[in-house]
Design a protein around this nucleic acid. Structure first.
Lengths: 358, 358
DNA sequence: TTCTGTCATGGTAGCGCTATCTTGCAATCA
DNA sequence: TGATTGCAAGATAGCGCTACCATGACAGAA
């Protein structure tokens, strides 16, 4: 029995870990095997209702939370989804990030960011993604309409989802709102308020959503039997500055409109500035509506009536689609690209109203 | 030899995993033990230079990337840092998110988001954090100045860092810029351009940075021997609307200023709107400067000269501080709160210039 | 009854990495 | 000279979970 004398006192109880409750603790407490607990946690079938409930009760009483690291290690691998972004100050980015991050946590996928600026060739970027073991990518605007990038991604068989695009690629998933319907709704609202001369500031002609918004505007007009007046349509490119010029043109034309519907909030804000310069009161003398519900819409005064996209929800759904697609791809299945349309919301604020009597 | 007949063909080669290169692969290739590779990867000492280089070469040639899940599982546990946020549309949020996410990836910590709205009691929120096994929190404005929250966090001994606060708590880490110095620099610039009557729009008096910015303005004036004129200081609360009223007051007073320095970009943008309403050309008739360099600064026309905080870098440093603090706390050490000041940048754009001759 | 299925559950073996201990060997000490 | 250090490197044992069988029980089919 000489081997009982002071050995280096093996620390058998614990070494690492914060002593947080584990699946094994739950199993012991519930008197079942770890596997059964695992099945319950993952909502798998083949567990009798009674057992399931017992286990769930113990889980709750121990406030057990699965360890994601162990899960992804044992589960084969964790998915990595990259969010490509080209414009760090874009208004939608934080909402997008918020939505995708929340869902990424829930799906146990790792979300990484990949800055993506023009200088770099699409092929090089995609090679980097593959090297970083990215399983799928999230493509916010304007990246989601870059043909070279889309093609390179497709060549690498990388699952992807286009966010808020007007032009969905055949092979990509997409989440968006119906731009045409939204513009239509806004125009209908204006018509309903009594406006007959409604100015429209178009967006950048390179982005497909611009055309869609314009189509919605035109359809509403024609449905209300209002003749389309080309002098009421001004070109813009989504920038404040272009909105300034467009609004100025619209308000100085022979028969100025009683309302301006700008294709985004920046240009609507510019219209507001021009209106004020001309001594026009908004909405008394002129109604102004925007599109996108960016921070700008509530910053300025009066606050903008505008269209809101449910960016956070869209991001959430996008992550889900990618998770499925990536898992399908890994198991060799085909995964047909889905296009999901979300409901937009017309946010009514103080920048529009009935046209002046005159 | 009967046991050679068709057994269920044990899949011994692989079951899971994408076959990506592992630490063991590197070890085999380099002819060393896995532990040595681990030491090299983690930059630990006690590896002879020659071995280290050989291993590093193999790592590169195999383009090996450590599996973070396995790492945190084996390493005891992964840190979880929560980013508390109360305002999803705040301009700084996406930059903050970008910076912290990038650093979180590098430090192998999990970043989670915790929405945090007024209705909820601070104690309840903190209890939830503890329950979610959050190890540390990131506190962006305006949360970073909420005394109840700070206190509750402190009671839970939760490491925290205040981002861009004017009022650092004793027990918290903090990353910020020197608001006073920044406002001073901007005012000096304006004085250097020849302005003598410089209007100032103050920020919300509840936020400490407001006072600091005002102090910087006043110091620059007094250093230039310009008497402080109370009629040139207007109250604001960081909203566009308050900026509208303040600018209107400033521009309609008896001796209007030739420049307006607003305590943030929103109020500067409002000042610009008021100036245009009064038919003033910016910067010819009136110079306008902002603070924060939000998206608004480059949206409007002319673009705003303003002060930029390196939010992304600050976030990065914040994550690093929290990682250290949390690890220190877990190993029972004290961790003295550090306050780090970052360099701001004065961004020169088109909204300011020499005062009019008259 | 005996043979299949089917289904709830358990056992075993890792996932890829790191903590901890141990070994081997040279430099240093008594 | 042997005992002691110091340090590089290896061996071992899990971290917490899940994939993949294996098992046993009980149903219906033969």
């Amino acid at each position: 029995m000489g081997d009982e004398i002071s050995q280096p006192a093996k620390p058998r109880i614990s070494r690492r870990g914060r002593g947080s409750t584990t699946l094994a603790d739950v199993a012991r407490e519930a008197g079942v095997s770890p596997m059964t607990v695992s099945r319950v946690v993952n909502g798998e079938p083949n567990v009798v209702a009674e057992t399931r409930q017992k286990v769930q009760a113990i889980i709750r009483s121990l406030s057990y939370v699965p360890n994601p690291a162990a899960r992804s290690l044992a589960g084969g691998h964790q998915l990595r989804i990259a969010l490509l972004h080209s414009n760090p100050s874009a208004a939608y980015l934080s909402e997008l990030l918020l939505g995708s991050l929340a869902e990424a946590g829930a799906c146990n996928v790792e979300l990484t960011l990949e800055p993506c600026f023009g200088a770099e060739k699409a092929a090089v970027l995609v090679a980097r993604l593959v090297n970083h073991r990215i399983d799928a990518v999230l493509l916010p605007p304007p990246l989601c309409e870059d043909p070279a990038l889309l093609q390179a991604l497709q060549d690498a068989a990388m699952p992807m989802v286009q966010i808020a695009t007007g032009k969905t690629a055949l092979f990509a998933h997409a989440v968006s709102i119906d731009d045409e319907a939204a513009a239509h709704a806004m125009t209908v609202r204006l018509i309903g308020q009594g406006h007959r001369r409604i100015g429209f500031i178009a967006g950048d002609s390179n982005q497909t959503s611009s055309g869609l918004r314009r189509l919605g505007y035109e359809r509403a007009l024609s449905e209300a039997d209002i003749a389309l007046d080309p002098s009421l349509i001004a070109a813009g490119d989504f920038t404040y500055r272009s909105g300034l010029a467009a609004a100025e043109r619209l308000l100085t034309c022979e028969h100025p409109p009683t309302a301006i519907f700008a294709s985004n909030d920046d240009m609507a804000a510019a219209s507001l500035a021009v209106a004020h310069k001309f001594g026009l009161d908004v909405p008394r003398d002129l109604s102004i509506c925007g599109f996108d519900d960016t921070a700008m819409a509530t910053t300025i005064w009066p606050e903008l009536t505008t269209i809101r996209q449910p960016i956070a929800e869209m991001a959430q759904q996008a992550i889900r689609m990618l998770t499925e697609a990536a898992r399908a791809r890994l198991s060799g299945q085909e995964d047909a690209p889905r296009k999901e349309l979300f409901d937009f919301a017309l946010i009514s604020r103080g920048s529009d109203g009935a046209p002046p009597r005159s």
